[in-house]
Write a protein that binds this DNA or RNA. Structure first.
Lengths: 236, 236
DNA sequence: TAATGCGTTTAACCTAACCTTAACAAAAAT
DNA sequence: ATTTTTGTTAAGGTTAGGTTAAACGCATTA
């Protein structure tokens, strides 16, 4: 059987190093697309689907962090690994906040990177693919397009959603009529579960309720201490 | 808010470093169990469920790799992070082969570890396995949904149940027509068995009886000094 | 460099939900 | 008859959540 190779987006400004790494990964059965800065990286990311992104941090024309943020807005799940010469703690933390999956300090052994990539892809394979690519939802009389971040009611003008509004409503929709645990939203969207992120989430719930009010058959219920439930009353 | 903290198994032979790390993680809302070698680590692992394991590599009485393999045999999914002083490539590779999720070289910044842990748990949050707990019960003409915490009588509006009401009714339902010992409910739900918790439970029994009153075929009987019995009279 | 706009967080205030405790009554056991 | 256990209701205190508005941070524009 011929398995399709995994696709890697490699963004690295040092041309020598980039080529060497690309060749090494290609030899190990990956399809590698090389971009030489953040700008180019984002263009290439938009044009194709990648299984994993490997980003250099320090680059001209958009650094790795900025690129990571943009990638995360487009795709919540694609694994991101940072490469960096710096060992600055702040940078590492910044990287994780930007949604990194892993971090590798230069110089590193290419074989180690390879193992990391394999480990990450393996993890991803075992986790649910189901929800990772679903972007369109029907919620009562609404249409949610989570990729383009808008919510449309019947034929009215679509409401633009902010990233957080969008992700939260999407999570609720993925669990329609079922419990969407607080904790899940906090870890997946806010990347931290504490008092403040929790209150922030409540603010967003209020915003969503406001949007959804025009359709009486749709509502967001609270399950005290557990989370929320997006219910769609099916007309009897 | 009563979110249950994530549990970390930390296996580290250096007592000073171990304690410091444990305290740091505890301060950040993790429940940390510290073991001081591989042997002890495995014993503790078997006795409880952990959300993540952090293992030192070089330890007396069973090293980190061996421990990781044993843990993997018991649990395929629990994330494992290695800590090591060595930068040996072979060790890193060995670690990934043993099923590591991540790798951190000493000395490392504890804040970095914290971010790594959060990143890993966040990844895991998406693949939350369906809880094998039983959540739905039919009690006479009632439907109890214990996950969404409501009790529905025929086609009427569901009654929302509080966590305690819900857990108690669920326990009774699990023992339908049979004795549900006081002590069981007190230890499982109240986590303490004393005069006050016992009286509190009686209050909840009264509340449940009120809810269940609309269906004559269902009632909660007391077995003096023993516990309660949820009986459903099968129509003759 | 300041002003503006946008998304998000934090603060503030209020209500609802929840749990415990107390009080008293009734039933069961001793 | 007295003690212990249970039934029930109501009061009190604590925490979670609903909501609005102000503050903040960041990027873009003037």
């Amino acid at each position: 059987m011929e398995t399709v190779n995994k696709k890697i987006l490699l963004v690295e400004d040092d041309p020598n190093f980039g080529i060497v790494l690309k060749d090494y990964l290609s030899m190990n059965d990956f399809d590698v697309v090389l971009a030489k800065n953040g700008m180019e990286g984002f263009e290439k990311f938009k044009k194709d689907n990648y299984d994993i992104c490997i980003l250099d941090v320090m680059m001209p024309y958009k650094d790795g962090f900025t690129l990571a943020k943009e990638i995360r807005e487009k795709n919540e799940h694609v694994p991101i690994v940072f490469l960096t010469a710096k060992t600055m703690k702040e940078d590492v933390l910044k990287g994780y906040k930007a949604g990194a999956d892993d971090y590798l300090n230069k110089p590193f052994d290419s074989e180690v990177l390879l193992m990391k990539i394999k480990a990450i892809l393996q993890r991803k394979a075992s986790s649910t693919l189901a929800d990772s690519r679903k972007f369109e939802f029907t919620i009562g009389q609404f249409q949610l397009n989570s990729k383009l971040r808008f919510l449309k009611f019947k034929d009215e003008e679509p409401i633009k959603l902010s990233p957080k509004e969008n992700e939260l409503l999407r999570l609720l929709a993925l669990h329609e009529n079922d419990l969407m645990p607080r904790e899940l939203a906090l870890t997946k969207i806010w990347r931290d579960d504490n008092y403040f992120t929790s209150r922030s989430m409540d603010v967003y719930i209020a915003k969503l309720r406001k949007y959804l009010k025009v359709d009486e058959s749709v509502e967001i219920l609270n399950i005290h201490g557990e989370g929320f439930r997006l219910v769609v009353k099916t007309e009897e």
